[in-house]
Write a protein that binds this DNA or RNA. Structure first.
Lengths: 149, 149
DNA sequence: TTCATATTGTAGCCAAAACTACATTTTGAC
DNA sequence: GTCAAAATGTAGTTTTGGCTACAATATGAA
């Protein structure tokens, strides 16, 4: 994927605490969109049997042109396949990503709800939050949920 | 706060569950950068007495040219002031935003730590997560922390 | 005071993600 | 089988956020 960041985290000054608090966010942005699309496509394929650009666009709240362009990027990234007028499908890599994203999404929602956030807000916020939860934090979330089950 | 979202959630198809799970994320992206910059500038002003573009760039891990462009956007947004070769300052609005961002950041970090996430991971993840935590969720976080104090 | 160096600023390029407007293809009703 | 409507695709524009390369300004040592 190597979105943009090449020598980003390379020579950080390491002066004090807030030196490395930033940086990762930037290259993660593009990943977030991929994840949203892949997650939705997986949902559509399961629920409707097919994932058409118009449905994707409607669900994401963007124009169909935007959706089609993003799907092209997904293809370039090796996450999806799509032939003109034939709908969108996920590659093996895409399916794996979708599965990971889905698990993570559920975990984040569950944690938020456990903390007293309403279902609606939990769903809404998780959509943004989930893209920034590291593996480490994810594990902590799982353990927390298990401990209070 | 009303970050950007105007008519986004307006005419959603409301078909089933995952209809409104997306959308907000998109327009929130630009806000996140503003928040990062304002937060950092406030830190620098407090800690160093001044916020120079080069320091900002280094801390954010971007080139100084990028930082300067972003500072220009901050100015356009009424969050900062800056005169050539004179450093960057925050407007009243900018300071208010910085304060809100800082509070929220601390709250997110504290919650993550309370859930068993290490300090380092909590700091790192919070940097991404914080931009997507709604007021509602923020309140729940505060209450959760209070309840287990 | 001069001048090298560091800082700051400007210009120009690129890719992503959004849009509108227009063109093409499919599909379903007839 | 035709043809209108819906779906899909394409083109061109904008803003953001990133970069490199180059120009201009400050600053500090000598």
């Amino acid at each position: 994927m190597h979105p943009v960041g090449k020598g980003l985290m390379a020579k950080l000054p390491a002066e004090g605490t807030q030196a490395r608090r930033f940086g990762k966010t930037r290259s993660a942005q593009s990943t977030a969109l991929h994840e949203d699309y892949v997650e939705l496509i997986a949902d559509l394929l399961e629920g409707e049997g097919e994932a058409r650009p118009t449905d994707i666009a409607r669900r994401l709240g963007v124009s169909h042109a935007t959706a089609i362009k993003s799907i092209a990027r997904l293809k370039r990234a090796g996450l999806a396949t799509a032939r003109p007028y034939r709908g969108v499908f996920l590659t093996e890599k895409g399916r794996a990503l979708a599965e990971r994203v889905r698990l993570r999404h559920r975990l984040v929602v569950d944690v938020l709800r456990a903390l007293g956030v309403s279902s609606e807000a939990a769903e809404a916020d998780a959509e943004g939050i989930e893209h920034y939860v590291s593996e480490h934090t994810l594990k902590a979330f799982a353990q927390f949920l298990k401990s209070r089950a």
